[in-house]
Simulated assay, not measured.
Amino acid sequence: MQDTIALPLTLLLCAAILFAGCTGSPGPAGTSSPPTGTASGSAPAGGSLTTSPTDAMPANIAETLTVQEKVYDGTIPVIFNGGMEQNLIAAINVTLYRADGQIVTRTIGTKKGDEVILQGTKQTDRVVVYMTMMNGVTYKVADVLSPYTVH
């Protein structure tokens, strides 16, 4: 009697395991494959001074930064203002496309108040900011022209 119950029960258990997907070999513990690529399009070619749309970050991880007005000497302060999930940021890269054709990339720290001061020209320059999250996704969070005005 027990043999007649044990065989169907064993088959049922094997079927449940197969349908649950538990037969694959697990990868190393604690690893997952991060998303590849970026949320934004490709970087501008050859130092273009034409802006393009920025990416909308998910509301639960939205962070803010400020590209301030160009100072009288042509410098452009960029300040990280932080946000609710700033601990999820791996890097913040700021690229300055100068009117004279030079391209300068700098990195800002990921703590509230961290800043970088870029040396622009006394003409209109372009500032593009990319924020890379810990999961590998990169968002273009700012793409602005920074005109020079006589003070």
Score class of each variant (00 low, 15 high):
residue 143 D to S: 10
residue 122 K to E: 12
residue 137 V to P: 00
residue 80 F to C: 07
residue 18 L to M: 13
residue 90 A to Y: 11
residue 65 L to T: 07
residue 71 V to F: 07
residue 142 A to M: 01
residue 32 S to H: 11
residue 40 S to M: 11
residue 4 T to Q: 06
residue 99 A to F: 06
residue 56 A to W: 10
residue 144 V to T: 07
residue 43 A to E: 15
residue 125 D to I: 01
residue 13 L to M: 10
residue 102 Q to T: 10
residue 115 E to V: 07
residue 145 L to I: 09
residue 104 V to A: 05
residue 82 G to Q: 04
residue 117 I to T: 12
residue 80 F to R: 00
residue 71 V to T: 11
residue 50 T to R: 14
residue 115 E to C: 07
residue 69 E to R: 12
residue 46 G to E: 11
residue 13 L to F: 08
residue 20 A to W: 04
residue 69 E to K: 12
residue 56 A to S: 14
residue 75 T to G: 10
residue 132 T to F: 05
residue 139 Y to P: 00
residue 130 Y to N: 13
residue 121 T to F: 06
residue 90 A to I: 07
residue 103 I to L: 08
residue 51 T to I: 13
residue 19 F to M: 14
residue 81 N to C: 03
residue 72 Y to H: 03
residue 62 A to H: 14
residue 102 Q to W: 01
residue 84 M to K: 01
residue 112 K to I: 07
residue 37 G to P: 08
residue 89 I to G: 01
residue 63 E to P: 05
residue 56 A to G: 11
residue 105 T to H: 08
residue 12 L to I: 00
residue 82 G to M: 04
residue 120 G to N: 08
residue 147 P to M: 03
residue 72 Y to Q: 02
residue 28 P to F: 15
residue 102 Q to A: 13
residue 7 L to E: 07
residue 125 D to G: 09
residue 44 P to G: 15
residue 139 Y to V: 05
residue 119 Q to V: 05
residue 53 P to K: 05
residue 47 G to C: 08
residue 73 D to Q: 10
residue 7 L to N: 01
residue 103 I to N: 03
residue 57 M to I: 08
residue 110 T to S: 09
residue 59 A to S: 15
residue 122 K to C: 01
residue 41 G to C: 12
residue 67 V to F: 01
residue 88 L to E: 11
residue 5 I to N: 04
residue 105 T to Y: 02
residue 93 N to R: 06
residue 30 G to E: 14
residue 131 M to E: 02
residue 120 G to E: 07
residue 139 Y to N: 03
residue 127 V to N: 05
residue 45 A to I: 13
residue 18 L to D: 04
residue 39 A to H: 09
residue 35 P to T: 03
residue 45 A to N: 12
residue 82 G to F: 10
residue 12 L to N: 00
residue 24 G to V: 01
residue 150 V to M: 11
residue 121 T to I: 09
residue 5 I to A: 02
residue 115 E to M: 15
residue 147 P to T: 07
residue 90 A to S: 15
residue 63 E to G: 06
residue 75 T to I: 04
residue 32 S to W: 13
residue 45 A to E: 14
residue 35 P to G: 09
residue 119 Q to Y: 10
residue 7 L to C: 00
residue 52 S to F: 13
residue 59 A to L: 13
residue 129 V to R: 03
residue 98 R to M: 07
residue 48 S to M: 10
residue 22 C to D: 07
residue 43 A to K: 05
residue 69 E to F: 07
residue 140 K to R: 15
residue 96 L to Y: 00
residue 119 Q to R: 14
residue 127 V to S: 05
residue 55 D to V: 03
residue 116 V to E: 02
residue 139 Y to E: 03
residue 17 I to M: 15
residue 96 L to F: 06
residue 107 T to C: 08
residue 79 I to R: 03
residue 151 H to W: 04
residue 54 T to P: 05
residue 28 P to R: 14
residue 86 Q to F: 02
residue 90 A to T: 08
residue 59 A to Y: 14
residue 87 N to W: 12
residue 61 I to Q: 09
residue 42 S to P: 05
residue 8 P to Y: 01
residue 111 K to N: 02
residue 17 I to D: 12
residue 110 T to F: 03
residue 144 V to P: 00
residue 51 T to L: 11
residue 78 V to H: 02
residue 48 S to Y: 08
residue 50 T to C: 01
residue 75 T to P: 09
residue 23 T to G: 10
residue 62 A to W: 08
residue 92 I to Y: 03
